[in-house]
Design a protein around this nucleic acid. Structure first.
Lengths: 342, 342
DNA sequence: ATAGATTCGTGAAACGTTTCATTTTGGAAA
DNA sequence: TTTCCAAAATGAAACGTTTCACGAATCTAT
């Protein structure tokens, strides 16, 4: 049998050309088995001549696994609506950490674009899925469960039973850490910008804020700010806050998205940071670090969260029934100039 | 033959359980063929009962393609050195655009972590690769060519023959556009921060700058700034520039990474933007847009570049021999307050 | 020269799915 | 009852690779 024109050469074509068995070709090309050096070279020459490339998908098939883990980021959902993707540092670090851990284990990391219908989900070719920030009753988890793809989440699933394994920071403790810090630095009226959503980190943060305020006899000053596209929602909310009769002396931006808005609102109104108003952010980012002055923020170590999530997933893949314990990645408070009055 | 304990159920197990042929099971589960409704339901029930999930890798194998495209970003290279990934808006938008185009065509997008050895490259499971910012004599392209994986680059490969298809902005024209704009706004001493590298966009930009300066009788003020990890290399370079005896009245930050450094240097020295010094950026980003004042910048439309690159790649995959023409994605100059003196 | 050991190479199975040509079944028309 | 046709279901091939148990050839030591 001779090579068909136009068709890619297979291992069989090489075997025929070199007048050996397919097994010999496989051995020669993978450096296994015991072949005479001369034979090995001849096979390699023929393979080269025919432009033979092993079919990656056939190799994958034989090995029994796709060798890829899918990462589902919420920000991907906005791709089609907005031409421009808002790539948050937090998610990018998660992606990097996941990729790193996946690759260390011989897997690659697949980004999944917005997936709405079940049909679309079915075509996700991955051995498992890491899903970021599930909402309550997240339909995506339902579908993935139906399809039988193992899932690990980053940030806890608020409602699902049984709860998929997850990696996360301690959102409740983090909010209190931030509040305690601001209190130490002399803030007495601490406002909070946070989103109305069913995400666990939002809920946990709000709860911590409410409880802390109650414990300390502070009036809660929470302003809901949508997390969507509007870059200046946070700006407007902050402006409104600062113009109140009794303005706050500290503002917590719970999300990375709010950072620029809060800072620009202060600048616009001529309020100095930290002298007139302290600013702290719930999620560290480049813009917090590079701001003038640098902003106090909580580093959730998203890189580690990504790594941890992938490792949990690989655990699940290895021992089928196992349902590993959640991993709580410790967070770090970076005390910076925005919350310290000289 | 009965289902082995522990092993995943295959289509054969379902067939046995439902007492039909494997072909019937396949047809029932995929909604094809002509099966009696009753049979179809019975098969579905059995599949459900056994927890049967079609093997995605076997499906992929049958279909003859992996169904994934790999995206190689330069920033991924820093993952292991630095725990924290610097996720540039530019690359994130490329990722989003690529993902979007890939998915529209039934492919998913795979991120590949740093790949050094040939061995590592061999395990990249993708039908093709989009490689961002190739350097001169990029070893990765050599390896990919050896392995026989089709490649498309974003930004032109400076040296390789035959040159792989690519998508890119018009770097040369963009630099001149920026310079003309600053000239129009009254700048007379325009400095350029750019990197010493073999990347095409750097080279093109430098060439455009040199030629433009010569044409306009301006003294070239180019300062090389490494693109690596150091966040404050750009800051130091700018400080040095502004403290010269004859300081520039405009600074071009050619890379997104320089943005914060340049702005903070101005702030540190008390130079107002744009009154004392204009600032423009060669790559638009959130930090440019959200800065106070917003920074004039060139929008390279990286989302479209990602889309274009993937489409080129899919073209190559479809018609094997074809070597499509490069796609030059038009860029947009966003004129913002940082280069306009009220 | 023969047994044993070593080296070199082979044939065939297996992975799980889909497809397609073919066979069986059931029912209606003659 | 027989004939014919559509509907329903089947068996087997094909996808390209790796692996594994085994056979043939060559060499070494008795």
């Amino acid at each position: 049998m001779t090579t068909k024109r136009g068709a890619k050469a297979t291992i069989r074509d090489v075997a025929a050309a070199a007048e050996v068995s397919v097994a010999a070709v496989s051995a020669a090309l993978n450096g296994k088995g015991s072949l005479k050096a001369e034979t090995r070279e001849r096979i390699q020459r023929e393979a080269e001549r025919l432009g033979y490339r092993p079919s990656r998908v056939a190799q994958a098939f034989r090995e029994g696994r796709i060798g890829a883990i899918a990462l589902v980021l919420p920000l991907m959902d906005s791709v089609d609506e907005q031409q421009r993707l808002i790539g948050l540092d937090y998610y990018m670090a998660i992606a990097a950490g996941s990729a790193s851990a996946a690759f260390a284990a011989g897997y690659s990391l697949t980004l999944t674009p917005p997936l709405s219908s079940r049909e679309q989900w079915r075509m996700v070719r991955a051995d498992g899925v890491v899903l970021c920030d599930p909402v309550a009753d997240d339909e995506r988890l339902t579908v993935l469960d139906e399809i039988g793809v193992p899932v690990v989440t980053i940030d806890r699933d608020p409602t699902r039973e049984p709860m998929p394994p997850y990696a996360a920071g301690d959102n409740y403790a983090n909010m209190r850490l931030l509040l305690d810090h601001l209190d130490d630095e002399g803030a007495r009226r601490i406002a909070l910008l946070s989103a109305d959503s069913s995400w666990a980190w939002t809920q946990d943060g709000d709860r911590a804020y409410a409880e802390w305020c109650a414990e300390h006899g502070h009036e809660p000053l929470r302003v809901p700010v949508p997390l969507g596209k509007g870059d200046n929602d946070a700006l407007e909310a902050t402006v409104e806050l600062l113009q109140r009769a009794a303005p706050p002396d500290a503002v917590i931006a719970s999300a990375e998205q709010y950072t620029a808005g809060v800072v620009n609102a202060c600048r616009k109104l001529g309020r100095r940071i930290p002298d007139d108003v302290m600013v702290a952010v719930g999620v560290d980012s480049r813009s917090a670090l590079q701001n003038d002055p640098p902003l106090t923020a909580i580093d959730l170590h998203p890189h580690q969260q990504g790594e941890a999530a992938v490792r949990l997933l690989l655990d699940r893949l290895a021992h089928d029934a196992a349902r590993p314990d959640p991993v709580i990645v410790p967070s770090t408070l970076h005390r910076r100039a925005s919350t310290h009055r000289g």
